[in-house]
Design a binder for these strands. Structure first.
Lengths: 233, 233
DNA sequence: GTGAGATAAAAGTCGTACTTAATGTTCGAG
DNA sequence: CTCGAACATTAAGTACGACTTTTATCTCAC
C-alpha cells in the first residue's frame, strides 16, 4: 500500500503528515529521525527535510537531545491546504467538514457583498455561466458535473471580492464541496432552493446589489449548515 | 545586519522568506541551491531544508534542471502565520493590514455569535475582565496596556466560538492589532465608542444573546475598517 | 522545419563524520 | 541527606563529497 508518489520526500511527508493529523501519535509522542529513516528505508537527509516541513506546519517540534515531538492539535496550522487535505482524508472528516463550513458561512457572504462592488464584467459573465451550469446539472444524478460548476462559482465569488485572504479560501471551499459530494452522505440531487439562490447571487452581483448578494449568500450558507446538521450527527 | 538567530536554518529561512515576501525576487525568478549555499555561507543541506519549507508555503517551486523558482504572490499560503509576519514586517504592510481587517470583519461577528452560545462561565468572566481592562486603559496614552487587553479580548471570543478555524485566527488578530498600534498611524487614545462596544459584547455573550453579540461585533469591525480608511490611503 | 538522440545542468538521494545543545547521572561539598 | 556542579550521553544540527535522476536544451540527420 505504498502511496506511489514520485520522489521519496513527498511520499514520506504524505505518510507521516497523514498519520499525525489522523491522531496516530498522541501529542507529546516522540519520533527519532534515525528510527524514521530506518522505517521508511530512506536516508536521514530525507527524513530531516520532511521534519522541517512538518515543523513549519506546527505539527511537530524538534528539539535536541529529545527528538521530534508531536504537538497538540490546537497548535496545528489548520489553514494549511495540505493539513486540511490530510484531515479531510483522515478519521475526523466530519468534524473538519463542519468547522470549515462554519468558516464558509462567515466568509462567503461578506465576500459576495464585496464581489458585487468589485467584480469585473468578465467575472460577472463567468458567474452567470457557472450558475446556469449548476441549473443544467441539478437534476438526474449528475452530482459530479454539478460539483464542477459549484466549485467554479464559489471560486469566482471569492476571487472577485478583491480580497486576497478571501481569494485564497477558494481551495478550501473546493475541498469542502468535493468532500461533501464524495464522502459525505448527500442527496441524489442538490437542493433546488440552493440552485436558485446561486442564480440569484449571480444576478445580484451583476446588478451591483451588494446587500442582496450578501444576504442571498448567507441563505446559501444557512442551507449548507442545515444540510450538515441533517446528514451528520 | 545578521538577524542573530540561534541556528543556521532559522536564520536563512527568515532572511529568504522575508526577501521573497517583500517582492525582492519577481515571480519566476530562479534561485540555485548551490548559489544560495555560497551566499549564506552554509552547506547545501541547510539550504535544501529551507527550500523545502518555503516550498510548503507555496512561496517557491523546486524543479530539476531548472532550479528554485519564485511563485506569484497569488499562490502564497497567506494564512501561514509565518508568512503573515513576514508580510507585515515588509513593504506592503498597509495592504496586508487592510485585507486582514476585512477578514476579521467577516469572521469575528459570526464568532461572537457562536461564543454567546458556547462560552463557558470562565470565558464569560475572562471576557468581562478584559473589557474592563480596556476601559481602564482607554485614556491617557496607555496604548500598550490597552493593546494587551484588546488582544486578549478577541482571543477569548474566537476561542469561545468553539470553532477551531476561528480559534486559530487568534494569532492573526493579535498580529493585526499589534501592527496597527505600533506601526500604523493611530490616535493617541482608542475610539471611546469601540471601547463601549467591547463592554457590550461581553455583556451580550454573558446573557447568551447571540444576535446582539454578532451585531455589536459587526459594529466594532465597521469602526475598524472606517478607521483604516481614514488613516491609510 | 522536425523529430530522435546526445548533452549537461540542477535538484534529489545517500553515507559518513563531526558539532552542539539538552538531559540525566554521578559525585563531592556542605 | 540535600544541593549543586562537573561530566557523560544522546539525538538533533551541520558539513562534505559522491552519485543518481530528471529534464531543458542543443545537435544533427532527415
Amino acid at each position: 500500500m505504498t502511496t506511489r508518489t514520485q520522489g521519496l520526500h513527498p511520499h514520506v511527508l504524505a505518510t507521516l503528515g497523514l498519520a499525525i493529523t489522523a491522531g496516530e501519535y498522541p501529542p507529546g509522542s516522540v519520533l527519532r529521525t534515525d528510527e524514521l529513516a530506518q522505517r521508511f528505508d530512506v536516508s536521514r537527509t530525507v527524513v530531516r527535510e520532511v521534519v522541517r516541513v512538518l515543523e513549519s506546519m506546527h505539527l511537530v517540534e524538534s528539539r535536541r537531545r529529545v527528538g521530534v515531538t508531536v504537538r497538540p492539535a490546537e497548535q496545528w496550522n489548520v489553514y494549511d491546504p495540505q493539513v486540511i487535505r490530510w484531515r479531510l482524508a483522515g478519521a475526523d472528516r466530519p468534524r473538519q467538514l463542519r468547522s470549515l463550513t462554519v468558516l464558509r458561512s462567515a466568509v462567503e457572504p461578506v465576500a459576495a457583498g464585496l464581489a458585487a462592488l468589485h467584480a469585473t464584467p468578465e467575472q460577472c459573465r463567468e458567474l452567470t455561466e457557472q450558475a446556469l451550469g449548476m441549473v443544467a446539472t441539478s437534476r438526474g444524478r449528475q452530482l459530479e458535473a454539478y460539483l464542477v460548476h459549484d466549485i467554479a462559482f464559489h471560486r469566482v465569488v471569492l476571487a472577485a471580492s478583491g480580497n486576497e485572504m478571501f481569494a485564497r479560501l477558494g481551495d478550501v471551499v473546493a475541498e469542502v464541496l468535493t468532500g461533501r459530494t464524495h464522502h459525505q452522505v448527500m442527496f441524489d440531487d442538490p437542493d433546488p432552493a440552493a440552485v436558485t439562490l446561486h442564480v440569484q447571487v449571480a444576478e445580484a452581483v451583476r446588478e451591483r446589489d451588494a446587500a442582496r448578494a450578501e444576504e442571498l449568500t448567507r441563505q446559501i450558507a444557512v442551507g449548507a449548515l442545515r444540510e450538515l446538521d441533517v446528514l451528520a450527527p
